[in-house]
Write a protein that binds this DNA or RNA. Structure first.
Lengths: 110, 110
DNA sequence: TCGTCACTTGGCGATATTACCAAATAAGCA
DNA sequence: TGCTTATTTGGTAATATCGCCAAGTGACGA
């Protein structure tokens, strides 16, 4: 098995893993609209600030977002602008699932 | 916090989580080219067949792939054709990271 | 019907993720 | 310099994921 290819899948998986959490998706979504400091994101997400800070570190580690210190606050912004385009595709997965589920329910009713 | 919105992020995260594993990415990539039975995918991934079977179940559970039994074999195929488009975007993340890393190295050399 | 092949499921140990609290750091102000 | 605010980091318990082996299921040919 080609090691170079394996490394590439590892690298991709690391990026997807960083995205694969509801709070982090919420953060990315918000940052796609405007930059935000940690306090604002914490308020939005509704977890402890330390938890949100760790989510932000996770996203920053894979290069999806970046931070900029201004005074005592740290502002985060989205670097990779194409990420939100994912969601359309994911939505189509979810809708397909919903349709399938509905048709199963229909079958049971009949 | 809007519960409906939270549910939506949960649902999206479930789909991304299903994708976020090197072996599963390899499988999706392969299935984007052609349908494959479990034995073929097992050979390609290089893990135990039971492991691959569980990866396939994970992908099937979120509706990304589907299975079709033919005789004693089970063929899997990609349902959501837009998934491979993700990779272009992810690649851009990785390349941006690589550039950043290189420039850091350059700075250290100087 | 028995055995085999292709696959899935159960179980389990090893490892990773997550969230919280508490403590550390860093900046700005009194 | 000491205090407060904003954020990160360390520690830890609860939970989830992963991969293997062993056992179960289902189709098919002998």
């Amino acid at each position: 098995m080609n090691q170079k290819l394996k490394d590439q899948y590892d690298a991709r998986a690391r990026v997807l893993k960083a995205l694969a959490h509801p709070s982090r998706l919420m953060i990315v979504d918000e940052l796609s609209r405007q930059e935000r400091c940690v306090a604002e994101l914490t308020e939005m997400v509704g977890s402890d600030m330390s938890t949100v800070s760790k989510h932000l570190a996770t996203l920053k580690n894979v290069g999806i977002i970046r931070d900029e210190k201004r005074g005592s606050q740290v502002y985060y912004s989205l670097v990779v602008r194409c990420i939100p385009n994912f969601f359309g595709c994911i939505e189509s997965v979810l809708q397909a699932n919903a349709r399938q589920y509905l048709s199963l329910v229909e079958l049971k009713i009949k």
